[in-house]
Simulated scan of single mutants.
Amino acid sequence: MFTIGDFANLGRVSVRMLRHYDSIGLLPPAAVDPRSGYRYYTAAQLGRLNRVIALKDLGLTLEQVRVILDDAVALPELRGMLRLRRAQLEAQLAADTARLSSVEARLHMIETEGRMTSQDVVLKEIPPVRVAELSAVARSYDGADIGPVLTPLYPELFRRLDAAGVRPVGPALAWYDPADDGEAVVVHAGIGVEVGPTAAHDFSVVDLPAMTAATTIHHGSMDSADLSLQILARWIEENDWRTDGYAREMYLEYWPEEADKGVTELQLPVRRA
């Protein structure tokens, strides 16, 4: 058997924690010296300790953990609970990472206020273009909500195009429409094609109309695109135009694993005031 200190080291917990588990009947020692009061544990008890820690990490109270373990939850069921919690934590981590990127982008915008220039904005007549596209709904137009929805659409679209024997032409595009549900937006991922719409395809083929747009070239990750949109906003205001919808994004250079190398033309539709 092991002393409480040795058992704590083996289980990677504190002695204080083991004493607390003993006091509430969650993990009593295998033996207690009647003269010294020293607690002793067996190697077999590490299994119960591992379950205690795992269930506690699921967010259960220690009383709930005790009830579950005393009811002898089966190993497959416990494994399923842990996998579910792992998936929840991974999703939360991804969301928090996206939010952090958004906060950093906003901070960068604040730090560069007063140094932005609208000299690189170009007014263009964007011709109509036929594209194959897939769409989904994002909770809002915030970059942290757009990215996780938009990014997976492109590999899936390319897979479907390849299966259909359709060759893409030109750079990839993204555009947005308001959804019916509050702040939500419909996210469209597309790329130019030279085929017409048909029910035989598992993707849509649409014709994007011509538009007058204020455009600028954005360098780097789309997490920082708000800065370029502010430059467009300043130019539009200075030249007495009005915006007419969300900006269209044309990905001139796209690096899935190195977003900072990206080059994107932002095309914001405008009309005369």
Rank of each mutant, 00 (worst) to 15 (best):
V205Q: 03
A164G: 07
R79E: 15
V65L: 03
G143K: 01
E113D: 11
M109R: 11
E90V: 08
L134K: 03
E125M: 09
A247F: 01
R51P: 09
R12W: 06
L26P: 08
S36D: 05
P29Q: 02
I68L: 15
A95F: 12
V131N: 02
A164E: 02
V52D: 01
A74F: 06
M211F: 05
D22P: 08
R271G: 08
E156F: 06
L84E: 15
Q119N: 13
G245N: 03
D162R: 15
P28T: 09
D96S: 14
V137R: 03
L62T: 04
N50W: 08
D70G: 11
V186A: 08
T151K: 10
N50T: 14
G165S: 05
R85P: 08
R39S: 03
G192W: 00
A184V: 04
K124V: 08
A95N: 14
A44M: 11
G114V: 01
V131R: 00
L208A: 07
V193T: 03
E63F: 12
P209A: 06
S14V: 04
L173H: 05
I191Q: 00
F2G: 09
A72R: 13
S140V: 05
E265Y: 01
A210F: 02
P171D: 11
M1H: 07
L26I: 04
A132F: 00
A31Q: 15
G59M: 05
S221H: 04
I126D: 03
F158Q: 09
D244F: 01
A200S: 12
Q119C: 12
P127I: 02
A98L: 10
Y41T: 02
G182W: 02
D120W: 05
L107P: 13
L69S: 05
L60K: 05
S140N: 07
L84C: 12
V67L: 13
L60S: 07
L18F: 00
G143I: 01
E104A: 15
E258N: 10
A91C: 09
P256F: 03
A214D: 01
I110Y: 08
Q230A: 14
R234E: 11
R35G: 10
S14Y: 01
A247H: 00
R242D: 10
